[in-house]
């Protein structure tokens, strides 16, 4: 069983070598592309509704005609949505960026130790760490609120940074461990030892410089999951000190929800992660792949 997930993803966006295979009885290309395009339409349908509705004005938003283009395009709903989401938009960056950096650094150190500086029982410890990835967070939520407060972490974003970082350790450790197990030859460490390098120096001067691909993956992964999180946010923050998902939920779930503004809000909320996805697509996919323990 190899750890190809970690090495494959960064390249996986490139055109694959056309696999040699039987050319007989192949699905006619027309059919194949028709099916592919049909699915493109289906997958993009919700996005179409979001965009179209967000530019409609109040009177046009009814049950009827919701699939049509706006008669008059207006930014009013975007302005309204921004008014209620703006403050939390900034806060969510304050949350997601530190989380992404912190857990990546921790994950790199852990991954290195578990892959190349192993201690007795490392495998068992690794499995125990991994289990933390899968737990339903409800099972820790009730005492978590009390413990975090007892530790004196300020409510709102600082609490969420702490929580996301801690619960992000398993996945980041996994990603880096698999990465180092694949790309760092044992000989490199030995060579370092020969030069008298200890653990920290080896990690710093030999390992970190070749860790960029791993960092890209964990940073994207942690950024996205902190940005999109709702569960921790709803339990540990509120509309005034919490991230954007809370604000969006309040906007869309208000007593008289304004559908156009909700949809504009949903787009605003999704913009940063979509941007990350579009700009860093191939690494993003790498991050997704890394979410599996093994492929």
């Amino acid at each position: 069983m190899t750890t190809q997930t970690m090495t494959a993803p960064p390249r996986s966006d490139q055109a694959p070598a056309p696999a040699p295979g039987p050319r007989r009885r192949r699905l006619p290309n027309v059919v194949r592309y028709a099916v592919l395009l049909l699915f493109v339409l289906i997958v993009l349908m919700p996005l179409y509704v979001l965009v179209v509705t967000s530019f409609k004005s109040g009177r046009e938003i009814g049950v009827n005609g919701q699939w049509t283009l706006p008669e008059t395009w207006t930014f009013a709903s975007w302005e309204k949505a921004w008014l209620s989401l703006g403050p939390s938009f900034g806060r969510t960056f304050q949350l997601a960026i530190p989380v992404a950096l912190l857990s990546s650094i921790i994950g790199a150190a852990n991954g290195f130790v578990l892959a190349r500086w192993r201690f007795p029982g490392a495998d068992v410890v690794f499995t125990l760490i991994l289990f933390g990835m899968f737990i339903p967070y409800q099972a820790v939520m009730i005492p978590l609120r009390e413990v975090v407060l007892w530790l004196g972490v300020a409510p709102g974003i600082p609490t969420l940074i702490f929580v996301h970082t801690v619960y992000g350790i398993p996945i980041c450790t996994l990603i880096f461990r698999n990465y180092y197990a694949t790309v760092v030859p044992e000989e490199l460490i030995e060579a370092g030892m020969m030069d008298g390098a200890g653990l920290l120096r080896t990690f710093r001067s030999l390992i970190l410089p070749i860790s960029i691909p791993g960092f890209v993956v964990t940073v994207i992964w942690q950024f996205t999951s902190a940005w999109n999180d709702y569960l921790f946010a709803i339990f540990m923050s509120n509309t005034r000190n919490g991230p954007i998902t809370i604000a969006l939920n309040a906007l869309a779930g208000a007593q008289s929800p304004d559908y156009a503004a909700s949809m504009a809000g949903a787009l605003i909320t999704s913009l940063p992660t979509l941007l990350v996805y579009i700009l860093l697509g191939r690494w993003f996919i790498g991050g997704l792949m890394a979410g599996s323990v093994k492929s």
Binding site: D13, A15, P16, P18, A19, R32, Y33, L36, F39, V40, V43, L44, P46, L47, V49, L50, T53, Q66, T224, W227, N228, D229, Y230, T245, L248, N249, A252, Y259, S262, M263, G265, A266, L267, T269, S270, T273, L274, V276, Y277, I278, G281, F284, I285, L288
Partner: peptide, 29 residues
């Protein structure tokens, strides 16, 4: 391998970048 494979893959994958809270808004509709 398919022509414009990258395009298809990008489209199929993009919903993954969206939070459930945001997609819930449009799916409720």
């Amino acid at each position: 391998g398919a022509r414009a494979e990258g395009f298809f893959r990008t489209v199929y994958l993009f919903p993954m970048a969206v939070s459930f809270v945001a997609s819930g808004v449009v799916w409720r509709w």
